[in-house]
Design a protein around this nucleic acid. Structure first.
Lengths: 326, 326
DNA sequence: TTGAAAGCGATACCAT
DNA sequence: ATGGTATCGCTTTCAA
């Protein structure tokens, strides 16, 4: 059995209060006493129980983070940025993946009982759940999701980058643009589409249900039989990569005949030479951790809604570079 | 302030023991009483404190997982597989990334105090630390790391796949093979090299310090000036991808003139058409979670060292496929 | 500077 | 079927 604070107190001939003080040097203790306690603690290999400590302090010293998945670099990077800052702030990180879970909302509420605050990524739980959490006094920060009520949020800027991306295409002479995606499913995609529209009024919208490679590869077929546009502006990289493969298989010249862009800058985008928009994923997580800490410590009561800048990454699916085809 | 079990007891006119029974239906309670308690709990929006519960039960109901990083699909997938099973077993998951942390060992020990058991991925902490944890009675399972003392471990099989990979190259007529990597740094790489050697006695070893793309691209230079071998067997995908880019830039015919293989099957490997070996990452995590649960529940006391099968993935860096070049 | 004792919020044993 | 109460392992007044 592990030694408790009482064992140490007895061994050192002091009270448990003194042991507690020494273990956390929370108050002045006479050096001689301190040394005696330290020696006793060492001898007994005493390590304070976190359970006891947490109950007494009425805090978990842990934060949660909810994400849909860790496949792809997106959420993994956000989680890492979050964990790094949380660790610096002396907090552990609890994770919860909602992928393939039908009771996501319940799981999140259960998790909320095990930490001092949590970050929710994307559309993992319903708006109602988020509001219920907030109503119960939980400290919550949303990431990559539009604000819900007075709950804090951190998002990547979309519209400005979409404008820059579109302008880049126009500069290259592309006139007929097709935006591939579904603005109605995600506010993020809606923002991207809106940004594109601001610069190119005649952009067409090609609606797809799933934003994955299969969908991308599939929809290319429609265009091969009729006319190709000058550029496909995809809602994300997966879609773009799927289209790329299919277009190249059909021998279409890229970027000569048609240009393709994605969004996210996943690792594969680099190998595919895909022009895309990179989001500051690690910073999203780090910022969320800091906002959450303010909430927990009570140093801020007004809600905040941060927006972090993104970066246009130009590669050879829009311009012919000297970079080797890999 | 949140309601406690005492508030509910008072409201329902019963003792806290009865409230506890009702909340967890741990014992028979007369229906009328049960309903009264339920009503009181609802009225007060009572949710049992996990802190109180954990202290009383003397368990965290949480497991930890330590990993170097989440970049790249490898660890992310392991973590996901782990989280999925842990959740099924009713346990939360605490994470700890050691990347860019100089106090990794301390952090892991601190984490061990906050959970009932933990999984350690790769070489994130020293062998000494692992043994110290085990000595302190912590429940530990190692993943992607050779066994340390009597500590449980789960690893992906390496040698058999290395043999299959090598045989595949021989079948294609490749004779002069060069293994790129450093068998001395990682037992995993050593196993891979050993497997290759078993099939091809005359394989050469090209030693590199870093197993990343830069190193891969760099070492190609050495070979361009003198003779290329028939195949480069790289210790991992990063290395192989780096070499690929550089070889293609130099106009070398792949797989005609030289074949290239990697290891891990990262996402980019697919786009690069890289022949490689895929590890059952999600299963590694899931298996670790189950082993850990056995340890925690005490249903097993003998150490186990599991080895999961891997899969050879053949793509066009070794055989000319019909797959389009992307 | 130190100690006694009252929480923190549950669980669980022992009576009744 | 219920209640009283000790217990889990610590932190934190309040006195001395």
């Amino acid at each position: 059995m592990r030694a408790t604070i009482r064992d140490v107190a007895r061994e050192a001939g002091v009270s448990i209060a003194t042991v507690s003080r020494v273990m956390r040097d929370s108050a002045a203790v006479r050096p001689a006493t301190r040394d005696r306690v330290r020696a006793a603690a060492d001898a007994l290999e005493f390590v304070p129980s976190q359970l006891g400590r947490q109950l007494a302090e009425r805090r978990h010293a842990a934060n949660g983070i909810v994400f849909p998945d860790l496949s792809g670099p997106y959420y993994a990077e956000v989680v890492l940025g979050y964990e790094t800052v949380a660790a610096e702030l002396g907090r552990s990180v609890l994770i919860l993946s909602t992928r393939g879970r039908d009771d996501a909302d319940d799981a999140v509420h259960a998790m909320a009982e095990r930490c001092d605050g949590l970050v929710i990524l994307g559309r993992t739980v319903s708006d109602a759940s988020v509001e219920r959490l907030a109503a119960r006094g939980a400290n919550v920060v949303l990431v990559a999701r539009p604000p819900v009520g007075g709950v804090d949020s951190v998002n990547a800027e979309s519209r400005t980058s979409a404008r820059a991306l579109t302008q880049h295409l126009l500069d290259l002479g592309a006139r007929r643009l097709v935006f591939v995606g579904d603005p109605s499913t995600s506010p993020d995609v809606a923002e991207r589409f809106a940004g594109v529209q601001e610069v190119s009024q005649e952009v067409e919208l090609h609606h797809v249900d799933d934003l994955d490679e299969t969908a991308g590869a599939h929809l290319v077929g429609d265009y091969l039989t009729r006319a190709l546009p000058d550029a496909f502006v995809c809602a994300n990289d997966e879609l773009a990569l799927g289209m790329l493969g299919r277009l190249q298989a059909a021998g279409v010249d890229i970027p000569g005949r048609v240009k393709v862009t994605g969004w996210d800058d996943v690792m594969a985008a680099r190998y595919a030479g895909l022009t895309t928009v990179r989001q500051p994923m690690r910073e999203l997580g780090a910022t969320a951790a800091r906002l959450l800490d303010e909430l927990i410590s009570g140093s801020r009561t007004q809600p905040r809604h941060d927006e972090l800048p993104t970066e246009l990454v130009i590669r050879r699916t829009t311009t012919l570079g000297k970079e080797p085809l890999s």
